[in-house]
């Protein structure tokens, strides 16, 4: 029962993007389409789960003073793995996400979970925490990606969803659109909370 709570808290209550405002860079940069968002969400979830597992396993062997550099090395190793795997199997997506795959290393969500959760809890709970947070992050960027893709291109996952007469609001898939959509969504979340 408790595990379930660790798993689901990342979806809405402690959503890393909307509630905690972590990992903003990839959130805004790769959400020009839903496809990119799914790819990024998957990559980040992979890194999150495996670095959580690994860190919770080795937490007793790391001196407290050097724990942050140690965490970063663990995270960087898994990022390198997913970087190579994506380069090999989904080259087009890898090219679209570009710089933001190696930059998962400095995504504050992952280091944040390592420091706040995996460094203090056992393996099983850390897996569920990582998985839940990863899914929460993925949901958030898919929502943003969907809004931007529908407004900016009239499409969803590459299929036309709006009538032909719809003139795409190009700004939504350009840089400013990311900030505006994100700001409005955060405002909406605040409104709902009250």
């Amino acid at each position: 029962m408790k595990l379930m709570k660790e798993f689901t808290k990342g979806f809405i209550k402690e959503n890393p993007v909307f509630v905690m405002a972590l990992g903003l860079c990839p959130t805004l940069a790769v959400t020009t389409s839903v496809e990119n968002a799914i790819g990024m969400g998957f990559a980040a979830t992979f890194v999150l789960v495996f670095s959580n597992i690994f860190i919770s396993l080795i937490k007793n062997f790391i001196p407290a003073k050097v724990r942050i550099p140690a965490y970063i090395v663990v995270i960087a190793s898994f990022v390198t793995i997913i970087d190579m795997v994506m380069h090999a199997f989904v080259p087009a997506l890898h090219k679209n996400l570009g710089l933001f795959i190696p930059l998962i290393v400095v995504n504050c969500i992952i280091l944040g979970r390592a420091e706040a959760f995996a460094g203090k809890n056992n393996v099983i709970r850390s897996i569920f925490d990582g998985l839940g947070m990863g899914i929460g992050f993925t949901i958030a960027i898919i929502v943003i990606g969907a809004i931007r893709e529908i407004l900016g291109a009239g499409q969803l996952l590459g299929f036309d969803v709006l009538p032909q007469t719809y003139k795409p609001v190009l700004v939504a898939i350009l840089a400013p659109g990311a900030f505006l959509v994100m700001g409005l969504l955060m405002g909406l979340m605040n409104l709902k909370k009250k």
């Binding site: 405002a21 700001g183 405002g187 009250k194």
Partner: peptide, 23 residues
């Protein structure tokens, strides 16, 4: 500013306007 837009949300909107200018 409307209460729900205070802080982060309005900062995002401002950033959006700045990005428009930089565009």
């Amino acid at each position: 500013i409307p209460a729900s837009m205070k802080g982060m949300p309005i900062a995002m909107i401002v950033a959006g306007c700045m990005a428009l200018a930089f565009l």
